[in-house]
Design a protein around this nucleic acid. Structure first.
Lengths: 197, 197
DNA sequence: CTTGAATGCGAGCATTGACTCGCGTCACGA
DNA sequence: TCGTGACGCGAGTCAATGCTCGCATTCAAG
């Protein structure tokens, strides 16, 4: 942020710019994400835009950060609530929470995951992964009886990646052979068989 | 291709251009992938470049297509060789083949998977997935005794995505808690537990 | 050797898009 | 009410870059 908005008027403008950024991304795609277009959609002039954002990517970053933070919040909340009752129900609930979070803004997910250079959203997504991974690894290390896997950190890495990827691909590709319930069943079988088998 | 090269001279030029494209991508990144730079690195003028490629993306497409075709070839070959002896050894060998293929040009993989808009390489990668998925689904359908999973198509989808993603992330991120052998063990446990458990 | 087609060149055109700057307007404290 | 600084504007600058066009060079068939 080049300058932080002080009056209510300018705070509203910053919000309008971010919202416009999201809107352009979703409706026109990343290629159309130009400062001029974002400014136009926000009903603001390019010059005004640059009073609060140092450059184009700053706007993009805010949009993306907000998205992943939202997803992370939902998943972490669901997970933290149930980490005590570790088991199939928890895995299912967490996967469900992730799916719900991803489905909430499928259009933006599509752009973020498929149109943007991955590196742009890498940081936040990695943060989400790390957060969940550490929760799981810690739990697994404390309760070695719940799994046969020898290395908690490794098991957490595998489980998080597998669930995240399956969920994202399901939401994005909507493979018609797999229903939502079926996906949850498969995730459960995959993770259950791995940790317990 | 705007025109296909007829003399040996021009065929060599096309090759130089593609090689230069790969080189620019790997050494300077996608942002530096401009027609002028590719032409310069290829020791060719922009005008010449446009005699054989209709536009910039055509060069990119060739580079990417070659990469995924190479990977697909190795994996499909390994898989086809061993589909008869379905079991842990086969899963391990296939995962190993994929890892080897991805490791063969890790630099290009990094650019293709993290810098490029995913959509660019989506087609070929999807083709690779489909090819492998169908091999597996067909086999599972023919031999319902090897797995407890009720839907071969779904099981194949899950298994392919899981292995592909874990392998790619391992090669790209090189997480120091997971060795190569360990990764293969984990993949085996994951897939084995899922299909058989 | 001749000749025309294929090949190759590279300066330059045209467009795009990030970003600035000088000026006008508005809000708020005194 | 009035002055000052925050706010807002948008035409314009400037660099990047995809791509073309007219001309020079090379190849190979006759």
């Amino acid at each position: 942020m080049r300058k932080s908005p002080q009056q209510a008027r300018s705070k509203a403008m910053v919000e309008r710019i971010v919202a416009a950024g999201r809107s352009v991304l979703v409706e026109r795609g990343y290629d159309a994400f130009s400062t001029n277009r974002v400014a136009t959609v926000a009903g603001v002039s390019p010059g005004s835009l640059y009073q609060y954002f140092p450059d184009k990517t700053a706007i993009l970053d805010v949009v993306i950060d907000r998205y992943w933070d939202e997803v992370a919040e939902r998943v972490a909340a669901s997970l933290a609530d149930r980490i005590a009752e570790f088991g199939p129900a928890m895995v299912r609930a967490t996967a469900d929470a992730l799916l719900t979070a991803l489905e909430a803004d499928r259009e933006l997910l599509r752009v973020v995951a498929e149109e943007l250079p991955v590196q742009r959203s890498r940081e936040r997504r990695a943060a989400l992964e790390r957060r969940v991974r550490e929760l799981i690894a810690t739990y697994l290390a404390a309760r070695p009886d719940v799994t046969h896997r020898p290395h908690p950190a490794v098991a957490a890495w595998v489980v998080v990646l597998a669930i995240e990827n399956l969920s994202m691909r399901w939401v994005l590709d909507q493979p018609d052979v797999v229903t939502r319930e079926q996906l949850l069943d498969e995730v459960l079988a995959l993770v259950g068989g791995y940790l317990l088998g």
